[in-house]
Design a protein around this nucleic acid. Structure first.
Lengths: 148, 148
DNA sequence: TTAACTGCAAAGCCTTTGCTCGTGA
DNA sequence: TCACGAGCAAAGGCTTTGCAGTTAA
C-alpha cells in the first residue's frame, strides 16, 4: 500500500472524509520527496486549487500526523518553522549556519541510540525526536577569519 | 571570574552598559541553577523591580546570548517556549509526554558524540544543539491501557 | 553630553480557532 | 440527510520592535 492509499485508509478509518483538498495535499506530499513546511505546501497546492486555504493545509497536516502517516519537527534552532515529511523510519536532523543560513541535512545512528536510551531509561514509547543544530559552517569560519 | 563578572565584562566589551535591570537579571540567572524561560525570569525579576518589562528581559537575554555567556534552546517538540541557561559544557535535553505533559530532563554522552560527529563531518564550530523528545511516558501507557 | 537602554504598546510570525456555508458518504 | 470539512478572518502565544523618555559613562 503506497502513501496515498495508506493516508486515505487512515483518514477513513477514523471517520474522516476524502475531500478534493485532502487528496490534492496527499498527492503533493507523496510527490515531494523532502520535508516541506505548511506554507510551501500551500503554495504548491494553490497552483492546482487557487482557493485552497492555509488553514486547510494545517488541518490536513494535523490529520495526517495524527494518523501517523507523516511526521513533523522543527528544522533550525532559530527558524520557528515546522516541517512535515512522509513517515519514514529514518531519523534526520539539520544543521543551520548562524551566519549564512545554509542548512545541511544530517543523519546519524547516534540518534537511534538516543531514542533507545530514552526508551530504556524512561520506559517511554512512541518517541519522536526534534533535533536541530546551529553553529558556524566551515566556509563562514574561513570568511570570518578573513574579514575579521 | 564568575558568571556575573563574566557577563558584565562581556557587555562592557561590546560597548554596552550595566543597568540596574541587567544587573538584576544576571544575578537571578546566576542564582537559578536550572533552565528558565523569559516569562519566569521576568516574574522573578518583578519581585525585586516591579517595573521591569518583559521586553527588557528578552533584550537582556539576547545580549547575554550574543556574548555567549548563556545559551538557549527549546524544551518541547512543539517549540512552545525557549529556555535559557548559564553556558555550561553539559548537554541536556528533555522528554515531554504527549499525554500528561510532564517533562523529564535527560542527558546522555550521546549528545556530545553527535556534536563531535557534526564537527568532524561538516567542519562546523560553535555548535549548539536543540534536542527534544516527545512520546508517551510509562505511566500514561499504563493508564491508556486501562481506559482504552 | 549623548548614545544606549527602558517601558509601553503595538506589531510580527506562525499556527489555531470560531463561524457559517458547502459537501462527501 | 447531516456531520465533517473548507474558507475566511480574527485571535492566540511567544517574541520583537518603534518610539519617546531615561540613564550610564
Amino acid at each position: 500500500m503506497d502513501f496515498q492509499q495508506q493516508s486515505k485508509a487512515a483518514i477513513r478509518a477514523s471517520g474522516g472524509r476524502i475531500t478534493s483538498q485532502r487528496e490534492l495535499l496527499i498527492d503533493l506530499l507523496a510527490a515531494h520527496n523532502d520535508e516541506i513546511d505548511a506554507e510551501t505546501l500551500h503554495q504548491l497546492a494553490s497552483q492546482h486549487d487557487p482557493n485552497i486555504n492555509l488553514a486547510t493545509v494545517y488541518r490536513t497536516l494535523h490529520t495526517l500526523e495524527a494518523a501517523q502517516v507523516i511526521t513533523s519537527h522543527y528544522v533550525s534552532t532559530d527558524h520557528e518553522r515546522k516541517v512535515y515529511r512522509i513517515n519514514t523510519k529514518q531519523d534526520v536532523f539539520h544543521f543551520t549556519c548562524r551566519r549564512c543560513g545554509r542548512m545541511t541535512t544530517f543523519n546519524s545512528p547516534l540518534v537511534g541510540q538516543i531514542k533507545a536510551a530514552l526508551a530504556a531509561e524512561l520506559g517511554a514509547v512512541e518517541l519522536t525526536l526534534c533535533m536541530c543544530a546551529g553553529g558556524l559552517c566551515a566556509q563562514c569560519q574561513a570568511e570570518t577569519a578573513e574579514t575579521g
